[in-house]
Amino acid sequence: MNQTARPLIPEQRHQEILRLLQQEGVLSIRSLTDHMNVSHMTVRRDITALEDMGHVVSVQGGVRLAKRAGPTSLKGRELKARRELPRKKAIAELAAQFVEDDMVVFLDSGTTCQSLVPHLGPRRNLTVVTNNFHVVNGLFTHTHIEVIHTGGAVDPYSGSSEGRLAADAIKSVNIDRSFLSTETWNMSRGVTSSSMEKVEVKLATLQASTSCFLLADSTKFGTISKFCVAAIDQLDAVVTDEQLSHQVQENIRDRGVAVHVAALRKRTPSGS
């Protein structure tokens, strides 16, 4: 860009930042101030505006494009679930430590919440409320655990139910601790979803729960979907894996939310 050109108005700067990010992926604040010949604070305001619109995500010292969740085929979801399974299992194993005897807990849709099921057997007088059909199937062998399924419209891609009927069922139960899943979350927009029907269920869960834990692995952080569910500070805790940056962990704790970090097991080299 010609540095002697007439100063850009905010909308032009926003378009220029997005154009550059499409090319570079990540940009530093310094590079943007030099490129557009504006102050550090001007760039910061532009980034905040773009972040509020869901276009970008702030990173330490710079900015990057937000990853948006789009429609995914059933096969694609299954492949992704298998690829991130070690993270999901580690998070679920840690989250299960916060399930106590005599509790009423909610397990959301998603394979991370489903992964809690094998750890629930030893609990006494436990009630599990869920919209996840895979959770229900997994609990059939634990006959001492009371299971309540929410009903509602069926989503075959997630193996769960959603919408108004499911939300109303959840509102009728006093939940001690809920475990929410998400495909997308970041600091500025919090937990988001691509489906309003899923948002209804999650909002009902937040309303019905004494405490709410988000189960979300590090690969999903910095992504955003169309609809807002909850700000980070509306949660009581986040359970994630050790590859979520320390800076992000501290940012979450600064908002009064506990962060529990699951260690990932190291792979054993083949032949050893």
Rank of each mutant, 00 (worst) to 15 (best):
90 A>I: 09
70 G>W: 08
40 H>M: 07
11 E>T: 14
71 P>C: 02
95 A>V: 06
53 M>Q: 15
83 R>H: 15
94 L>N: 09
30 R>C: 04
79 L>G: 01
18 L>C: 08
96 A>F: 13
28 S>H: 02
95 A>C: 02
28 S>D: 00
40 H>I: 09
45 R>L: 15
25 G>F: 00
28 S>W: 05
69 A>Y: 03
41 M>V: 10
88 K>G: 12
52 D>I: 02
72 T>S: 10
69 A>G: 15
41 M>K: 08
33 T>F: 00
62 G>C: 02
82 R>T: 11
54 G>I: 04
42 T>G: 10
29 I>L: 14
34 D>M: 09
51 E>T: 14
80 K>L: 11
88 K>Y: 13
22 Q>F: 01
11 E>I: 13
52 D>C: 03
32 L>K: 07
17 I>P: 01
34 D>T: 05
62 G>I: 05
77 R>L: 13
100 E>Q: 15
66 A>T: 08
68 R>P: 04
55 H>Q: 12
55 H>L: 08
46 D>W: 01
98 F>W: 09
61 G>S: 07
14 H>Q: 09
58 S>Y: 07
16 E>F: 13
55 H>G: 01
95 A>N: 10
46 D>N: 02
91 I>R: 11
57 V>W: 00
62 G>F: 06
49 A>S: 13
30 R>M: 07
73 S>R: 09
70 G>A: 14
56 V>E: 00
93 E>Q: 15
76 G>T: 07
43 V>M: 12
26 V>H: 07
90 A>C: 03
93 E>R: 15
44 R>C: 12
